[in-house]
Amino acid sequence: MATDRKTALVTGASRGIGRAIAERLAADGATVVINYARHRDAAEAAVAAIAAGGGRVLAIQADVAKPAEARRLFEEAEAAAGPIDIVVANAAVFLAKPLAESTEEDYEQVFAVNTKGVFFTLQEAARRVRDGGRIIAVSTCGTRLYFPHASLYLGSKGAVEQFVRTLSRELGSRRITVNALAPGFTDTDMLHDDQARALGVALSPFQRLGTPKDVADVAGFLASEAARWITGQTVDAAGGVV
């Protein structure tokens, strides 16, 4: 499966890593559907930038934390761009808070997007992605590290990695690969704390933060024919952070 002439849907793609993945897939020749929940202006800017470079792209608003909206997203994407070959489940939120101080509202907020939203995105992808396609769920290298104040985020992403392992077994007969992509400390709006940014630089052998493009290039590989023999894996794009 070549990325060229394929259709890709990327959730949470108006900014940061999601936008960079959308840009990479469009540059590789895919028609890209950018999903966003709230940031319409950012989504329109992403569409304009990709289109200016000759890419085929459109944006669809949907809150994937709501199963009915996730379903609508896929229906509208198929109606506008045709059958889907590549799905990247990227939409996520981050909340830094000690576990002992986290509220039920905090739990619901984080798990609604990061876990429930990804689950139903993967469910629609499993039903709709064409044989030989690619499904990628964005996780984090933090699931194997011990970070304080990140229990909700890391717990939600740990579930995503289990979804990926199971789904890869369920879709193997259709030659669909299913993998998790695990960024490290990446220079996006989500990484706004100066202490966390300094830690990310210190933990990487490259002594810098990752860029959205660093992560997107790995996603582009996982979406390509070259990654046909990789499935059920969590693939690091973390700059050597261990």
Results as ranks from 00 to 15, higher is better:
residue 98 P to N: 10
residue 33 V to K: 09
residue 81 A to M: 13
residue 131 D to K: 14
residue 187 D to K: 13
residue 195 Q to V: 15
residue 55 G to E: 01
residue 183 P to I: 14
residue 231 T to Y: 03
residue 220 G to H: 02
residue 191 L to S: 15
residue 172 G to V: 05
residue 150 A to L: 10
residue 70 A to S: 15
residue 12 G to R: 07
residue 143 T to C: 12
residue 30 A to V: 00
residue 38 R to L: 12
residue 88 V to M: 10
residue 127 R to L: 15
residue 106 D to M: 09
residue 159 A to Y: 02
residue 18 G to N: 08
residue 112 A to R: 14
residue 137 A to L: 08
residue 118 V to E: 05
residue 117 G to V: 05
residue 68 A to R: 15
residue 168 S to A: 15
residue 85 D to Q: 09
residue 167 L to V: 04
residue 197 R to E: 12
residue 116 K to E: 06
residue 127 R to N: 11
residue 28 D to M: 00
residue 52 A to L: 08
residue 216 A to R: 11
residue 34 I to T: 00
residue 225 E to K: 00
residue 184 G to M: 13
residue 69 E to R: 08
residue 192 H to I: 14
residue 22 A to W: 02
residue 107 Y to Q: 04
residue 17 I to M: 10
residue 88 V to C: 10
residue 117 G to R: 08
residue 127 R to V: 10
residue 30 A to H: 00
residue 28 D to T: 00
residue 201 V to Y: 01
residue 80 A to G: 07
residue 188 T to E: 10
residue 90 N to Y: 04
residue 147 F to D: 14
residue 69 E to Q: 10
residue 25 L to T: 01
residue 135 I to S: 03
residue 172 G to T: 04
residue 44 E to I: 07
residue 226 A to L: 04
residue 93 V to C: 01
residue 51 A to D: 03
residue 186 T to E: 13
residue 118 V to I: 13
residue 108 E to I: 11
residue 9 L to D: 03
residue 120 F to D: 07
residue 75 E to P: 09
residue 146 Y to M: 13
residue 163 F to E: 02
residue 240 G to T: 02
residue 87 V to T: 07
residue 64 V to T: 05
residue 157 K to E: 00
residue 183 P to G: 13
residue 241 V to K: 08
residue 73 L to E: 09
residue 155 G to C: 02
residue 76 E to N: 06
residue 2 A to S: 01
residue 230 I to N: 04
residue 95 L to K: 10
residue 133 G to N: 00
residue 19 R to W: 04
residue 126 A to F: 02
residue 79 A to G: 10
residue 64 V to A: 03
residue 71 R to F: 12
residue 223 A to G: 10
residue 179 N to G: 08
residue 208 R to Y: 01
residue 91 A to T: 03
residue 157 K to N: 02
residue 230 I to Q: 04
residue 238 A to E: 08
residue 194 D to G: 07
residue 160 V to P: 00
residue 32 V to Q: 03
residue 58 L to H: 05
residue 216 A to V: 07
residue 55 G to M: 05
residue 186 T to N: 14
residue 153 Y to N: 03
residue 121 T to Y: 08
residue 68 A to L: 15
residue 95 L to R: 08
residue 27 A to C: 05
residue 22 A to T: 02
residue 131 D to T: 13
residue 162 Q to E: 11
residue 174 R to G: 05
residue 228 R to K: 09
residue 81 A to F: 09
residue 138 V to H: 10
residue 53 G to N: 07
residue 47 V to I: 01
residue 1 M to I: 00
residue 144 R to Q: 14
residue 97 K to C: 05
residue 173 S to C: 11
residue 70 A to F: 04
residue 122 L to N: 05
residue 124 E to W: 07
